[in-house]
């Protein structure tokens, strides 16, 4: 028996909107720790890892570990039927091949339940080791989204370089080139508007902008985004989900032949 009651139902709606274009089908894993997902895109270039910790739910009952295969497009269709202020409860019985999403309006005058068919998904769970990164950049998520969108109108790839001067996003395409440098900026009053660059050593990596743009669909989840770079690892683009956990996107770099 599984019953997860999320008062801020809009968080789940936003999570779905941020992953449904990257991943088609995925297993949602439910354990005492929380509600989580790990999935790769169909070409195995990007990976998404989501964690919504059990403490973040108003009510969290998960009698035994359960993995529920869902088509994310179908799940998104159902969650779109929930109001932004609705409380969402996810329910499933042991051994059932369906999951139920219950939506309650804040005033309790409207209660809806949507039952969705589950599916068997063969997916490999990858071990993601703890790592030291050469550089970690924290910046406003809207700024990062703007940069990715702007650069993708010029080129297909972005070179992200971190030096002591700042973080540089560069692209080139048929019509020309573009470079955007963001410097560390901690003087602003609001911490979520600051740009913080922690650099152990300079790093420069090339990534497909198509994926970066897809990751920025998570922008509504957090004011800040953290970009962790290492020359030996996929980049990690992380959006913290207030009080609950995170959504992390991993993207393998492009390497010169």
């Amino acid at each position: 028996m599984l019953e997860l009651r999320l008062v801020q139902g809009s968080l789940l709606k936003k999570v779905l909107e941020s992953v449904k274009d990257l991943v088609t089908d995925a297993n949602f894993d439910c354990s005492a720790t929380g509600f989580s997902l790990q999935a790769m895109d169909s070409s195995h270039v990007a990976l998404v890892a989501l964690l919504l910790r059990s403490e973040g739910f108003e009510h969290y009952r998960c009698d035994r570990n359960l993995s529920m295969g869902m088509n994310l497009n179908n799940m998104s269709k159902m969650l779109k039927c929930a109001g932004n202020d609705d409380i969402i409860t996810i329910k499933a019985d042991d051994g059932s091949d369906t999951v139920t999403f219950m939506f309650e309006s804040p005033t309790q005058d409207k209660i809806a339940d949507f039952e969705m068919k589950l599916m068997d998904i063969d997916s490999e769970h990858l071990g993601i080791p703890e790592a030291e990164y050469h550089a970690i950049v924290r910046m406003p998520s809207a700024e990062f989204a703007r940069i990715c969108k702007d650069l993708s109108s010029i080129g297909d790839t972005v070179v992200i370089s971190v030096t002591k001067e700042g973080v540089k996003f560069s692209t080139r395409g048929d019509i020309g080139t573009a470079n955007i440098v963001c410097r560390q900026n901690t003087s602003v009053d609001k911490p979520e508007e600051s740009t913080i660059i922690e650099m152990n050593e300079p790093v420069s990596l090339t990534f497909a902008l198509r994926y970066m743009n897809s990751f920025t669909k998570a922008t509504p989840l957090a004011n800040s985004v953290t970009i962790s770079l290492s020359s030996e690892l996929p980049v990690v683009v992380e959006y913290k989900i207030a009080e609950m956990g995170y959504i992390r996107f991993y993207l393998a770099p492009k390497i010169e032949d």
Binding site: M40, S43, H44, V45, A46, L47, E124, H125, L126, G127, I128, P129, T157, T206, A208, E232, L233, P234, Y250, L251, A252, P253, K254, I255, E256, D257
Partner: peptide, 14 residues
């Protein structure tokens, strides 16, 4: 020419 790497060449099942 830049070659796209795959996630599975960095992380292994486990």
């Amino acid at each position: 020419v830049n070659q796209q790497r795959q996630i599975t060449s960095f992380f292994t099942p486990g």
